[in-house]
Write a protein that binds this DNA or RNA. Sequence first.
DNA 1: TAGATTGTTAATCGATTAACAATC
DNA 2: TAGATTGTTAATCGATTAACAATC
Lengths: 207, 207
Amino acid sequence: MNKGISKAVIRRMPRYYRYLGELLENGVERISSGELSERMQVTASQIRQDLNNFGGFGQQGYGYNVQFLYDEIGKILGLTEVHNVALFGVGNLGQAIANYVSSEKLPFHMIGLFDVDEKKKGRIVSGIPVMMLDEFEDFNRTHRVDIAVLTLPKDAAMPVAEHLVDLGVRAFWNFAHVDLKVPKGVVVENVHLSESLMQLSYNMTGR
Amino acid sequence: MNKGISKAVIRRMPRYYRYLGELLENGVERISSGELSERMQVTASQIRQDLNNFGGFGQQGYGYNVQFLYDEIGKILGLTEVHNVALFGVGNLGQAIANYVSSEKLPFHMIGLFDVDEKKKGRIVSGIPVMMLDEFEDFNRTHRVDIAVLTLPKDAAMPVAEHLVDLGVRAFWNFAHVDLKVPKGVVVENVHLSESLMQLSYNMTGR
DNA sequence: TAGATTGTTAATCGATTAACAATC
DNA sequence: TAGATTGTTAATCGATTAACAATC
């Protein structure tokens, strides 16, 4: 299952989740696709189509129960289990991301920080001591690492990723400016800050 | 001009730019859409279509001159002028982004850092002293701020953005987990880390 | 029941790919 | 010139929107 759902739909799901979470905080119990459509600035039709990729979560004449829908989307997004995260490259960005992951209330758990710079060894970031990259193989024997964050210089990203794939890592959150080549079954989510900045820059021109 | 070009095309331009930059570093002088297609894993047809939204940069029987195409895409993306950047919210992420912007060789120039926390006042980040938010109005009189980076808690983002819009800021790079409502003519580029993480999480499930 | 709103099919719109004539 | 490869039109594919019957 879960097959054949377009990337466009998946990109929208976290946003639904965020809006439903806010409604929940505000004590809203039910919402129609029409109301949600107005708040989110998308068509009601799209909301109903998107949700119906995963199942019929609403009720005719009533709409959607906010708590129920929120929970269902959480399940769809895989937020019902804790994901163990290890981070590679404890520079400025790496430290910020480590802190960020730990501070978010999402079920992602920072369990290890790795770098190649001896000077960083043992430094505490977000409550965790930095380890050396060559200690990871050992670490990996006693810890299940679900996600590797790559906050490395671009030339280091690919070799490190390859090494981690060999050691069984199956998911990467990649901040390096490269397109990682990984085997089938390994997933990569990119955050390319420079490309985001360039898009902003483009939109500032003529338009 | 520049009108009517789809967001999908714009999203791909920075990636072309990156690949062309690498070719340039490797001393490659010319490339055909076919070769580039293979490297980038997109169709040659798409490359030609994308580029021809902006003009005919190639030559039949030859392909594209790498340096020329690189420069043209740079122009399209607005990378021929320096953009002054001010950042709001000097937390972990804010500091990392400040450092990031300064370290990138792209033409974005960090000129001010603002926070509301008195304890941060005067602290030097990326070579710039942190100022208090209420000093911005003054600062803005003597400096041209092209882009405001928002690395603030979500509840602070909207009020601060509104204030900045009133003071003439026309572009936002938004890291807060909110959809900013801004007047027409003001551009917003979002980096929603939590949504990126959730997409990764989704792709780790069934698929 | 009558009114509201979903789930779903059909229609439209836009983006991607294929094909090929133009041309270097 | 012959070969290569673009620019561009046409065909296909996919995603979004509209419409409405089903149903709570």
